[in-house]
Amino acid sequence: MTSETLARVEAPAWLPGTLKIFKNIIRYASWGVLILAAAATVLPFVWMIGVSLRTPADLYADPARLWPGEWSVAGFHAVLTQLPFARLAFNTFVFAGGTTILLVFLDSLAGYALARLKFRGRQAIFIVILATLMVPFQVTIIPVFLTLFDLGWLNTFQGLIIPRATSALGIFMLRQFFRTLPAELDDAAHIDGANSFQIYWRIVLPLAKPALASLFVIQFMALWNDFLWPLVVSSTLDMRTLPSALTLFSSQSGVDHAALMAGAAISLAPLAVAFLVAQRFFVQGIATTGLK
């Protein structure tokens, strides 16, 4: 349509070719910028690994260097001896793993009932669960802290795990997924004599594996990385999780940089490996629930 108006102005013969070259230059340059940006994005993690393997003298001598001039595993050795690192890793695994397993189980039970069973008050219960999603965690943390104190659960695993063992978001996500499964499956199983738990366990759960895996992965990640909750519930070093212990360690005076970065690298490692192996579930889980 615009060609008629443009045709009146005669373009010089060299123009199209030159424009094309310019366009290509811009295209390649912007890809170059994008690749540089991506490299800059992961640079802090590369630097973290680099520093964890350097000696203090090497680091102070040339902070502009990304990679060790002189290699050393002293940092890893230091963090493993200065902190009860095995214990912290164990705590984090028990907290994140135990909570996630319980949470996925309880959320799938509730989600199943809300999606596929008929009972009075179903809609009301669903709305109450959704409403709790609106409330920021900080509002509940003080009363929960007092409840845990009354129960004698502060600084214990049950105190860390039980209050977090269900999530409104997980119930919502699984309910939505379970509703997409055809109702005929339940009817057929009913006729074959299966009860509602057998239908849940043998039919619905196996079909929901991808959704369960996504929920598992993002919840495990969120709990592994969780900071404020374990910080408030645990009070002694032997009950801390990696993120809060790492932070306390970093604020000590005269801290050894290599040890600190080694600690950071070790706390990140399980998630980094999980991310590389199961990226699909991270992406799906985050895209569907908005949890980060």
């Binding site: 309880l106 509730a110 709790t132 409330v135 929960v144 409840t147 209050p163 269900t166 119930i171």
Partner: peptide
């Protein structure tokens, strides 16, 4: 109705650790 058994654990936890604390 046994359906309540499925939602009971989550509801209990939400009640004790979210709703009442709010």
């Amino acid at each position: 109705n046994s359906a309540y058994l499925y939602v009971a654990p989550s509801l209990l936890l939400i009640g004790v650790f979210i709703a009442e604390p709010i």
